[in-house]
Design a protein around this nucleic acid. Structure first.
Lengths: 220, 220
DNA sequence: GTCTATAGACGGATAGAC
DNA sequence: GTCTATCCGTCTATAGAC
């Protein structure tokens, strides 16, 4: 009568993290109560405080669990590219793929929770919750620094400030493409018949076009 | 002892709307209580329910107040462009400016609340609150349809689906550029010395570069 | 480690005086 | 229209039995 491979993690900690990730993505932090989390995870209400200490610490752990993997995968790819290039500057398209493509591949994982997490991350960028913001900035800084340095080398003729801005714009386009597509659908229902696998190549060509666009008048 | 021009609107309704707009932008809907709103607006707690009926109806009115202006300004600009062109397809750059440039000009209004509202709008796109989403979709649909039609005519060689996606990506880049810049600052503090007036030209050239990018392999 | 029970604060909404 | 006072539900967190 037992399933050979239990779908739901038996361990309480993971079940809470999975439930919290999903509910935070759907309803935000303030819109998600402990009771919703423990209800979905089918664990006792007191379990969250026992295992994580508080709701805030749970939020941090939800991010920590996946963010390290994501950024390590990005850096590993960048390392591989740099080793391959042997000191020469990289192609911008490869750098963009290593950073944004890696995130998109994580977002394509619909079963393991990668998609849910990337949606959550996307909506969190525009939620200026003080302590989550600081936490994310710290977790991200090393990775972002490495990629910016690579872009500076790859585009020596472009001012650093300009590259910084374009990196920022690319983050926005990607976050919104992931978090906003099944959320808002401003153009109602227009993406319903769309193959989700086509998102990545479409977005990548958009990002590269933006990154390589001619500089604005008076821009530096 | 009286100010000649009172800074704060005397009228209760407007004070509530202003306070709610600011607090929703800062803390989200669930993170903002009636008591916070009425406290900041310096009106009585019961005033919200008297003037708006409920918190949900207040949220709707916060959007309604500015969204109509924004989209009418966009459509007026599009009308002017189309009248000027006299039946010929428009240049993509003009269309993009009419839609996104108009929003950026609203976001540049730091005193009148335009900036606050655009930040709020940006964060709301990634907050899949059921009833706000539907409300926004309705308020937006006419305007988006008109601009999509203009883009279809302006770029006859590009598939409609592709244009739809790129419009979506542009929305994301802009929303995030406005809502995320003073919120997250992933690259900590790096934008502090930046002139906010430079955002618009930088973003516009990025958007156009993305819109005109070569199509992805296998894209339609 | 898991549970029940509850403390103590805060949420939205409203009744009724002025 | 504005105010006070209050209802009643939900929230996070914790104490203490098992």
């Amino acid at each position: 009568m037992r399933d050979d491979i239990p779908r739901v993690p038996a361990d309480t900690r993971s079940r809470i993290l999975d439930a919290a990730e999903l509910l935070f993505k759907e309803h935000g932090f303030d819109g998600t109560s402990m009771r919703m989390i423990t209800g979905l995870a089918a664990v006792n209400l007191a379990a969250v405080n026992y295992h994580f200490g508080s709701k805030e610490l749970l939020i941090q752990d939800v991010f920590r669990r996946r963010l390290a993997d994501l950024n390590n995968a990005r850096l590993a790819r960048l390392d591989a590219l740099e080793a391959e290039a042997g000191g020469a500057p990289l192609k911008p398209s490869r750098i963009v793929d290593a950073f944004f493509g890696t995130a998109l591949r994580m977002a394509a994982d619909m079963e393991g929770g990668g998609h849910t997490f990337m949606c959550l991350l996307g909506r969190t960028y525009t939620e200026p919750n003080e302590f989550v913001r600081k936490f994310l900035a710290e977790e991200y800084s090393e990775c972002v620094e490495r990629f910016l340095a690579a872009l500076y080398r790859a585009l020596p003729e472009v001012e650093h400030t300009e590259i910084l801005w374009r990196f920022h714009f690319m983050m926005g386009a990607m976050s919104y493409a992931i978090a906003g597509t099944d959320a808002l659908q401003l153009v109602t229902g227009k993406f319903d018949d769309e193959d989700p696998d086509r998102l990545a190549p479409r977005l990548m060509s958009f990002l590269l076009g933006g990154l390589r666009a001619p500089l604005a008048d008076g821009g530096n």
